[in-house]
């Protein structure tokens, strides 16, 4: 199995489920209650018998107690489409430790849980690599190996605004489901906000994996510097002293709070992943705590 996840964690993930608040968008019938009455096996409700109803669903026990004919209504069961959206822009590859790897590991854990329950997973790196034919789809538990290998091969380096990349990758995204967005939420806020809104407007339940490196919280350089943006290549000269560092650190914390507040306002579950605490166990506890897995 790939290095992203160990067999042991995969066995554990097979007993978990993606913590979607509503199951939507599955293309095929699955074992996930759709929340609406249907032909599933999960009891949903009773209603009064009406002519034309299948007499097999009459609840004779209720007739014995109520002396009225009640029909059992079962919930529709459908599969879940999980969209893994991996921001592979250059900002994910800068700094000490790999933000991209930590984010991919968290996304792989969610995808592995989904595949184990028969859900479909669509993986899309943003921006899409050149020559890519669109999102790759994985269904079923057997597809886990291929998904993990693909996730392990995602490389950073592309410089493209997240919103534009998302729209290019999902021009026809109409099917509802769950989207796992792995990004660092840096860069122009309008860009990543537009990307999130793009998903929300299409009825997708979004899980945001916010990846943060340690050097972003507390930079380890000082003095006269020429800072270069990892994505845009733009440079800024700065004399970084203690006061400037303190101001930056305060600003970064404010940025984290602002991202969290904005996402929460839109009902997006956000998981803050720090690359220094991105082991399998730590990520699993983090996902369980935020309800991404259950």
């Amino acid at each position: 199995m790939t290095a992203l996840l160990s067999p042991r964690i995969l066995e554990r993930l097979a007993r978990l489920d993606v913590g979607t608040r509503r199951a939507r968008g599955g293309r095929a019938a699955g074992d996930r209650a759709a929340g609406v009455a249907g032909s599933g096996a999960v009891f949903h409700d009773h209603r009064a018998y009406a002519p034309g109803d299948d007499p097999r669903y009459i609840d004779w026990s209720a007739w014995g107690r109520l002396r009225t004919l009640q029909v059992k209504v079962f919930e529709l069961e459908e599969s879940l489409d999980v969209h893994l959206l991996i921001d592979r822009t250059a900002s994910l590859g800068s700094g000490r430790g790999s933000k991209l790897e930590a984010g991919c590991r968290a996304a792989a854990m969610i995808a592995a849980a989904a595949l184990a329950r028969g859900d479909g997973v669509r993986l899309q790196a943003l921006p899409a690599p050149e020559g890519s034919a669109g999102p790759r789809e994985y269904v079923g538990r057997r597809a886990t190996r291929g998904l993990l290998e693909t996730l392990g091969n995602v490389e950073p380096g592309a410089r493209r605004p997240l919103g534009d990349a998302l729209r290019e990758a999902f021009p026809e995204l109409r099917r509802r489901g769950a989207a796992v967005l792995v990004t660092d939420f840096l860069g122009d806020p309008a860009e990543w906000r537009r990307a999130v809104d793009f998903l929300l407007h299409r009825g997708v339940e979004v899980f945001a994996i916010h990846v943060v490196g340690p050097e972003e919280r507390r930079p380890e350089f000082a003095g006269p510097l020429r800072l270069r943006d990892a994505e845009t290549g733009e440079t800024v000269e700065i004399d970084l002293d203690d006061a400037a560092l303190a101001a930056y650190e305060e600003r970064f914390e404010h940025h984290l709070r602002e991202v969290d507040s904005w996402l929460r306002g839109r009902g997006v579950a956000r998981v803050l992943v720090e690359t220094t605490r991105a082991s399998e166990g730590e990520l699993l506890r983090l996902l369980l705590r935020h309800g991404v897995l259950r």
Partner: peptide, 15 residues
């Protein structure tokens, strides 16, 4: 002046 790469300049710009 030494070169340093940061993920984004958005947080540094005001400084």
């Amino acid at each position: 002046r030494r070169d340093a790469e940061v993920p984004s300049l958005s947080l540094w710009r005001d400084l």
